Amino acid sequence: MAKRDAIVPPGRQALYEKHRYSAAIRSGDLLFVSGQVGSREDGSPEPDFTRQVRLAFDRLSVVLKAAGCSFDDVVDVTTFHTDPETQFETVMAVRASAIGEPPYPNWTAVGVTWLAGFDFEIKVIARIPELI
């Protein structure tokens, strides 16, 4: 069995090591990205919700880039929300600026009661572009 091909962007290794997971795993031409949250540099939750969502998308972008991908390569998205009804508009606005134009990736939004102090989390699956 092949060893996991972990993607860990620079600057966050201690956080991933502390919690014992990888930012993403490459498997063939697919990239499975762990849930990204809007944390401050020390790993604590950003209290402003809009900023927290932007930071989560920013962190996701960094992981995608570390694997040679971008949001254009994302095929499946799952988001987790502690209060979907009140958060939806904010998430959709940030999403529109990150995801861009159609065709859009698959998207599943899940309401949850706990995200370790966070209010939003996003995880994706992306297809890794072929290197020329």
Rank of each mutant, 00 (worst) to 15 (best):
A2V: 11
F120A: 00
L30R: 15
P45Q: 06
A109K: 01
A67E: 08
D83C: 03
V94R: 03
R127I: 10
D42S: 06
L15G: 14
S44C: 04
I25G: 01
R95Q: 11
G11V: 06
G43L: 08
V33W: 06
A24L: 03
Y21E: 12
P103I: 10
Q13Y: 05
A66E: 14
R4N: 12
V94L: 09
F71A: 01
D5F: 02
I125G: 00
N106Y: 08
H81W: 10
Q87T: 01
A66M: 03
P45I: 04
D29C: 03
K123A: 15
G68E: 07
F88Q: 14
V53L: 08
A93G: 05
A14K: 14
A96I: 00
S97F: 01
H81I: 05
A6D: 10
R59K: 12
S70N: 05
V8G: 00
A116K: 07
L30W: 10
H81T: 04
F88G: 01
V8R: 05
V74S: 04
D72M: 03
V77P: 02
L115M: 09
A96Y: 02
M92Q: 15
F120K: 02
T113M: 09
R95W: 15
F118S: 01
L30T: 10
P102R: 11
F118I: 02
A14R: 14
V112M: 06
P102M: 08
Q87I: 02
R12L: 09
A116L: 12
V74A: 04
D83S: 13
A93W: 00
E41H: 13
L60Y: 07
S27Q: 14
D29T: 11
L64Y: 02
R26K: 15
L31K: 01
L60T: 05
S22Y: 15
S44Y: 03
V53G: 09
P129M: 10
F71T: 01
G100W: 07
I99P: 01
P84H: 08
D119I: 00
P47S: 12
L30V: 00
V37F: 08
S97G: 14
S27W: 09
L131F: 04
G68S: 07
I128N: 06
A98P: 00
G68D: 06
